[in-house]
Design a protein around this nucleic acid. Structure first.
Lengths: 166, 166
DNA sequence: CGCAAAATGTTTGGGTTCAAACCAGTTTGC
DNA sequence: GCAAACTGGTTTGAACCCAAACATTTTGCG
């Protein structure tokens, strides 16, 4: 361990404001250099903002990803849905049960594999999805406004993290 | 609703691979354009990778942020810690209780405000933090390798999302 | 001063998530 | 064929997280 003490500055210390938390007072130290920290903070802020936007209705935010993937891939199996949505398969079980009970989804048995089943939207599910998409579009417009033209680059980086780390 | 049917293509369909999930098969549709979706997937992948790295020990991953901020700001109050860490203050209550019980932190009563208290690391806490920092450094080296020179821009964008949305 | 409003930390209740264990069905290898 | 390995889905147990409601204390304003 090195121990090269520096002479103390005499005047008021210059504070690097990029190393402070959003409150402008709390020091973050090396945490400021960690991608994981910023990833978590940004994701939490985005999730919170989205929840507040849809909070009035009874449609839960986690449903959007599932419904949209199922809409794009009718008959998809839960395990494929799990990978595409980035959630553990066991997480999906109760969500799919709720969505089926609510009449948004239907199970379709497979002939060639009795373990699995396909998932598809009902007409009611398409209505619910459309409602969620409205909220999501408004939310993402806000993110677009914040990020601006950097959006494609940001998405590319985030996707690279997800695939290379997975 | 428009209903302008297009003639079906005869040859093999050209698929835009940027609109597929990591498995290369599942279609994501407009989800692919949502920053929030990629934010969640990337954060989940990063968190999972970090957990697997520290999984052997009994040190929990959520502790790193708290311990590091407390190390940088001795005597910090829970509410300030909550804002800096991006967690609800009620989330911190049980975590701080655990960290105090384990001997990593100490409470310091305030003279001028009997509601609040200050938090500081013990010697044991500094050891635990150092251990976590080792894991985090290795984890972030992997993220650095993935992101490369884009890191400053990525962090800048993520911080902008967190601050502008909060 | 006196009292309403705001701030701080905790408790409670509900939702989300993951990993490990598990069962049932399918594929593989011999 | 048939046992072993594998795959798909569910259950269970634990951790994490937030928002609302709460008690205590401080602050601000008349």
């Amino acid at each position: 361990m090195k121990n090269d003490a520096q002479p103390l500055p005499e005047g008021p210390v210059e504070i690097d404001e990029t190393r402070l938390a959003a409150d402008g007072k709390t020091r973050l130290g090396v945490l400021e250099d960690y991608i994981g920290y910023h990833l978590r903070i940004a994701q939490a802020a985005s999730f919170r903002a989205f929840c507040q936007r849809t909070g009035r209705t009874d449609v839960k935010p986690g449903w959007l990803t599932l419904l949209m993937i199922i809409a794009e891939n009718p008959g998809i199996a839960p395990v494929a849905l799990s990978r595409a949505a980035g959630r553990d398969k066991s997480t999906l079980t109760p969500m799919l049960r709720d969505l089926i009970k609510r009449g948004y989804l239907v199970k379709e048995e497979r002939e060639n594999d009795r373990r699995s089943y396909g998932l598809s939207l009902t007409a009611e599910g398409r209505v619910g999805l459309a409602e969620l998409v409205d909220h999501a579009a408004a939310h993402d417009r806000e993110l677009d406004r914040i990020i601006g033209s950097m959006k494609p680059r940001l998405i590319k980086m985030l996707r690279k993290i997800a695939t290379d780390l997975g």
